[in-house]
Design a protein around this nucleic acid. Structure first.
Length: 233
DNA sequence: GACAGTTCCGGCATTACATCA
DNA sequence: GATGATGTAATGCCGGAACTG
């Protein structure tokens, strides 16, 4: 009774309880640590313990988590206070985001350099908690993606309008053609159709001026698209 | 080498709060 | 001052990657 170990365990248990109420994600981590302490780490892999030691002691970790929780408790009740980043903080985060939209693009690099260095550094500069930096980056990526989606949407809309116009034009062309066919059945016999785009063109040789079937008013249909690269599809 | 367990992080949907018209 | 719209910080959950035994 009253040993250092017990005191620490009790403290950690209290922290664990508060965390259960407030700290969502961090809750899992602290509870894990508490469990580890209570079980003498026997239920955890040596690898985890080893990594923990490399990153820093459990006390340091708990201290870090606790600082977050206590920050959240500054105003007493369980209120979810929402801070507003000031201009300097936003600017620095934006600047950092421009360089890397993710805090640690390369996971191997991250592990080698002892985890979250970048995030910690930013947090320190901005006087924020690392978790806040992390959240800001997540939300920023979401905003970027949303904006890009809006741009893409606009693009598709314009594309749709263009295609609709083209479709309307082609429909009219077909109607004109049908009308022409009814008026001059023989004329159609000399028309050819592009196999890929199904546009109608004049008779094979390109020069239709000598053809007895040439119809001056409908020059659009008489032009042979296959002899003109700019109009061929 | 395959596999299970652990840890961490990013993506995403959602909530909650602050600000403004 | 009340209210709805908007912006965004924060939360919770899930899946994937990396690592270890």
């Amino acid at each position: 009774m009253g040993s250092d170990h017990d005191d620490i365990s009790n403290t950690v248990l209290v922290l664990g309880f508060r965390l259960f109420i407030h700290a969502g994600r961090e809750r899992e981590r602290l509870v894990s640590i508490v469990s580890r302490r209570e079980s003498g780490a026997s239920s955890f892999s040596n690898a985890s313990v080893k990594r923990e030691r490399e990153m820093g002691s459990e006390e340091v970790e708990i201290e870090r988590v606790w600082s977050r929780v206590s920050d959240e408790d500054d105003d007493g009740a369980n209120a979810r206070k929402k801070l507003r980043l000031n201009k300097v903080q936003s600017a620095l985060l934006e600047e950092s985001f421009k360089q890397h939209s993710t805090l640690n693009p390369d996971k191997k690099w991250r592990i080698i350099l002892n985890l979250q260095k970048q995030k910690q550094e930013l947090a320190r500069k901005l006087n924020l908690r690392p978790r806040q930096v992390e959240v800001w980056f997540q939300n920023r990526r979401a905003r970027t993606k949303l904006k890009q989606t809006e741009v893409d949407c606009e693009l598709l809309k314009k594309c749709y309008e263009t295609l609709t116009d083209e479709n309307r034009r082609l429909q009219k062309e077909v109607q004109d053609l049908k009308a022409l066919k009814l008026a001059q059945p023989l004329y159609m016999a000399t028309l050819t159709m592009c196999p890929s785009c199904e546009r109608i063109s004049g008779s094979g040789g390109g020069d239709t001026s000598n053809s007895p079937l040439t119809m001056a008013p409908k020059t659009h249909f008489l032009r042979n698209p296959f002899s003109n690269p700019s109009t061929a599809c």
